[in-house]
């Protein structure tokens, strides 16, 4: 029992540490500068992560089932950020690619922490078979928010929305569950996610805000515009 606790603590620490390290580092990072005219700014509004409708927690009957869902949620989030990182790398937006890669690692650490805590080698429920009440897990980022010229600030805005959604999801679950074990687990997860929210907010404060013309591309791919 105590081993479980201490591993949880140490992994938790490492999630925090990696987030904190990233906050510091980002202050040094420069933003990508777009010097072109405002007139040619893209027609679309700035990338504003859309808060999707809240999802009611799926009824989970035991703490193990709850943790398996939490694991699926973190894994799905990690995979999505990794996909974003690949996509940004492909479009030569390396700064944002690196940030998404970092976010993916953080989510993966959180998922690994769940396995350690439960003493599982793998989750008893396959991630592919988990269905959410909405279309995707409550921490999975929305791909349609990406833009090839996006900056670290935008990526962090996306991350903030997802951490908040995750926090609210666990808070809701803790409120509605009748199982004391699930409630305890959900409260702990809620605290973790709330801490991530604070850290991302701090990270955002230190990250340069994009200027109004961030989407301007001197050599746009959309010839018809």
């Amino acid at each position: 029992m105590s081993t479980k606790k201490s591993t949880k603590k140490s992994t938790k620490k490492s999630v925090k540490k990696s987030l904190k390290k990233s906050v510091k580092k980002s202050a040094k990072q420069s933003s990508r500068k777009n010097t072109a005219k405002a007139a040619a700014a893209a027609k679309r509004k700035a990338v504003k992560p859309v808060a999707r409708p809240k999802r009611a927690a799926a009824p989970v009957a035991s703490n193990a089932e709850f943790m398996a869902h939490a694991y699926a949620m973190e894994t799905e989030a990690a995979e999505r950020y990794a996909e974003f990182a690949d996509s940004m790398e492909m479009h030569n937006n390396l700064e944002v690619a690196e940030l998404f890669r970092k976010l993916s690692r953080i989510e993966q650490l959180h998922a690994d922490q769940i396995l350690e805590q439960m003493g599982w080698r793998q989750s008893p429920i396959s991630v592919a078979n988990v269905r959410w009440e909405g279309t995707e897990g409550p921490e999975t980022a929305d791909p349609t928010e990406l833009h090839y010229l996006m900056q670290p600030y935008h990526a962090l805005q996306i991350a903030l929305v997802n951490e908040k959604r995750a926090r609210d999801f666990f808070a809701h679950l803790a409120k509605v569950t009748r199982d004391a074990g699930v409630r305890k687990g959900a409260r702990e997860m809620e605290e973790d996610e709330a801490e991530h929210v604070r850290l991302i907010e701090a990270w955002l404060k230190r990250t340069p805000k994009p200027d109004a013309n961030w989407k301007t591309d001197q050599d746009p791919p959309v010839l018809s515009d």
Binding site: E79, S87, H91, P143, T144, E145, L146, H147, Y148, M150
Partner: peptide, 16 residues
Amino acid sequence: YKPIWCPGCGDYSVLS
């Protein structure tokens, strides 16, 4: 091979 689709294209999710 990493997909070369535009970031945010729906086809990423279809691949998954």
